[in-house]
Write a protein that binds this DNA or RNA. Sequence first.
DNA 1: ATCGTCTATCGTGAATTAACGATAGAAGGG
DNA 2: CCCTTCTATCGTTAATTCACGATAGACGAT
Lengths: 120, 120
Amino acid sequence: MAVKRRDQDAEQDRAQKRLRARAELAGFAKALGHPARVEIVRFLLARDSCMCGDLVDHLPLAQSTVSQHLRILKDAGLIEGTIDGPRVCYCVAPRALARFQGLVADLRPGPGLTDRECEV
Amino acid sequence: MAVKRRDQDAEQDRAQKRLRARAELAGFAKALGHPARVEIVRFLLARDSCMCGDLVDHLPLAQSTVSQHLRILKDAGLIEGTIDGPRVCYCVAPRALARFQGLVADLRPGPGLTDRECEV
DNA sequence: ATCGTCTATCGTGAATTAACGATAGAAGGG
DNA sequence: CCCTTCTATCGTTAATTCACGATAGACGAT
């Protein structure tokens, strides 16, 4: 009984973890679900380190629109911005990017899912 | 001159390739930018092979909504559906998934981008 | 042929997103 | 202090997304 309880708990734990992983992956993917935002991340990665509002020059979008895309990426945790004098310096968050890459790489055939109805 | 021309062409080629890669990655990411669609892909992967409308039982969503999510994933190329008698059998498209994983894995520091203004 | 089942599509409404211009706040230079 | 520059935010509009019920098409079974 005690064992069974632990099994249930463990199962519930795994379910919780799956739920979180799903939401996490969806959040990252959604943030990258726009060409401009993909380009922002690639641009920031191409520059060895951070970068400020050259993005506005680089992208054919209004400054406010770029700022909005930056906020979406920042909310998703994929980039970070630090104030640097009158400018802001953005760079990708390596841990978040690695996490995203790990979640995507984990999308492979195999178990890791039960039959129980899932919440979304 | 001819050499320079070839260089220009090559550069233009790379630019085109980047443009396509960006749109491709954004498209895949957008398709996975919803928890229900992430769950669909995971569910299809967990079952060894394809699966039909058990997804409707698995997900707490209306059948029409599930069908819509399936269409989005199919439009993105991430899954394929084949008619199997009165049902439809879905499975992930391995090549597309691998392509997506490759594009995501390629998001790493380094060159691969020029300074020229880009189109979005 | 008719029924029941399974799935896709249509039509709809609420919510979200994308883009912009305009405005406001912060910081440095004169 | 004032001005300029850089960035974030506000407000708006058009477009898209998400979810649903209702409907329609395909197919096997009866």
